[in-house]
Design a protein around this nucleic acid. Structure first.
Length: 301
DNA sequence: ACAATATCCTGCGAGC
DNA sequence: TGCTCGCAGGATATTG
């Protein structure tokens, strides 16, 4: 699932591929993912509104592409912005496809001819013969059209916690943003505390820092807090370097997988041996989610 | 005031 | 073999 490193990978690739291009047209078979968002959120319910959306983006130029937490933002001409959140299974692909018997098939042989293309639910036609496609198996992804100035002031972006790879994200800032109590894994995944960390990287960060995922923040020592702070930076940077994870159906804009798998130590490795000590990796439930950890390296007391 | 739970959606694996 | 059932999961809405 796309977390900060995956979103960062996509954004860097998008900048190389679609910056300064113009929207010509769009297609979707899932209008529910599209929202007009200014002072309110309005879910598109019928074709007329899709046409409205088409009219809004046609002719607009992509002037800037950036990331905030797990959100991708396209700043367009005429004070418009598109915010895309890929949620669990969404990912953006850039290339050329053709519609064949109801399925989008890549024209370009460089694209993997794999089932991922079956889940393309949104397609933007761009200048330069390129298409920007949103593939999303579970249809949780959201595409929001904003007035750029309103988006910048939106709760959506401003309620997010600091960017963990920002130079300003010091150990002191990290300590300041932490709530007084709460299980550390849930705290790390809370986007209003720190932006961009999800299930995979919270598990990996806590393994790296040797901290039990269910431990309460109030019980963490200064040393443990520092280990977690350092691990956040280390794991996220490594994952970006490796172009994201390869465990789920995440794909880069080229359709390729990321390479984080060789660094993955605990996530979805229940029953396997701990890379560090050889103990058996365990899984615990918290809030309907699962946490993976080494019971020896990450002591619960 | 806050925390636990339901919701969205689809593929997949377990169980019968 | 083929059906049903339940689970996974980010963010948000709703319930407790």
């Amino acid at each position: 699932m796309p977390e900060l490193p995956e979103v960062e990978t996509i954004v860097r690739e998008l900048r190389k591929k679609v910056l300064k291009r113009t929207f010509f047209d769009m297609w979707t078979d899932n209008p529910k993912m599209i929202y007009f968002c200014n002072d309110f959120k309005k879910q598109v319910k019928d074709l007329r509104d899709i046409n409205e959306f088409k009219k809004e983006i046609k002719g607009k130029v992509i002037n800037n592409i950036w990331r905030r937490g797990k959100n991708i933002i396209f700043d367009l001409s005429k004070n418009k912005s598109l915010l895309i959140h890929q949620k669990l299974t969404g990912h953006l692909l850039v290339g050329q496809w053709t519609l064949n018997k109801g399925l989008w098939e890549p024209i370009d042989n460089n694209f993997l001819k794999e089932p991922v293309n079956r889940y393309i639910h949104l397609m933007f036609w761009l200048s330069g013969d390129l298409m920007l496609a949103l593939s999303d198996l579970r249809k949780f992804a959201k595409v929001e059209l904003w007035d750029s100035d309103k988006l910048k002031k939106s709760r959506e972006l401003n309620e997010l916690g600091p960017e963990p790879l920002d130079k300003n994200f010091t150990f002191q800032i990290f300590k300041n943003v932490l709530p007084k109590k709460g299980k550390i894994k849930q705290v790390l995944m809370n986007q209003t505390v720190v932006a961009g960390i999800g299930n995979i990287y919270s598990d990996e960060i806590l393994w790296e820092a040797r901290v039990y995922p269910l431990k309460d923040v109030s019980k963490l020592s200064e040393k443990e807090l520092n280990e977690i702070y350092q691990a956040i930076k280390k794991i996220l940077k490594t994952a970006i370097k490796l172009k994201g994870e390869s465990f789920s159906d995440f794909r880069r804009t080229s359709g390729e997988k990321g390479n984080f798998d060789k660094e993955r130590k605990v996530y979805q490795k229940e029953g396997e041996k701990c890379f560090r000590c050889g103990a058996t990796i365990q899984r615990v439930k918290l809030g309907g989610r699962s946490a993976h950890f080494c019971p020896v390296c990450q002591k619960s007391d």
